[in-house]
């Protein structure tokens, strides 16, 4: 590891900030209230239920905290959270069940 140059750092901060804003604004900003084609809307309806599970799945199967080794407490916590969430539709209850499973199993297996 070496020290990061101040010029490089500020270039990255500013350009990354502009770029990230651009990505976040590209559709709401440019399309606004113009109608989007039905096929596109049909795909967009599934953005959240596709992207977020895909974001989480590798972290569940290969957790960074265990250096990527499959971990029963974490996998069980994920299954319990999702299961309780699907059945009860209650976010807080799902989080508490998942956290309870994680800490319970970490304690029992630790």
């Amino acid at each position: 590891m070496t020290d990061i140059g101040t010029g490089t750092l500020w270039t990255v901060i500013i350009l990354l900030g502009l770029g990230s804003f651009g990505l976040r604004f590209v559709f709401t900003g440019l399309i606004g209230d113009r109608a989007m084609p039905p096929w596109l809307l049909r795909h967009l309806r599934y953005t959240a239920v596709a992207i977020l599970p895909a974001l989480v799945a590798p972290q569940v199967v290969w957790p960074a905290a265990t250096d990527g080794v499959f971990d029963i407490p974490r996998a069980a916590a994920a299954v319990v959270t999702l299961g309780v969430g699907l059945v009860t539709r209650n976010v807080i209850l799902a989080i508490l069940s998942g956290a309870g499973t994680l800490y319970g199993l970490l304690y029992l297996m630790g």
Binding site: L52, V56, Q59, A64, A77, R89, V91, L102
Partner: peptide
């Protein structure tokens, strides 16, 4: 580390 997966899973389930 696992607060993130749990929070997202709880949020998307409904």
């Amino acid at each position: 580390d696992f607060a993130i997966p749990i929070a997202f899973l709880a949020m998307i389930a409904p």
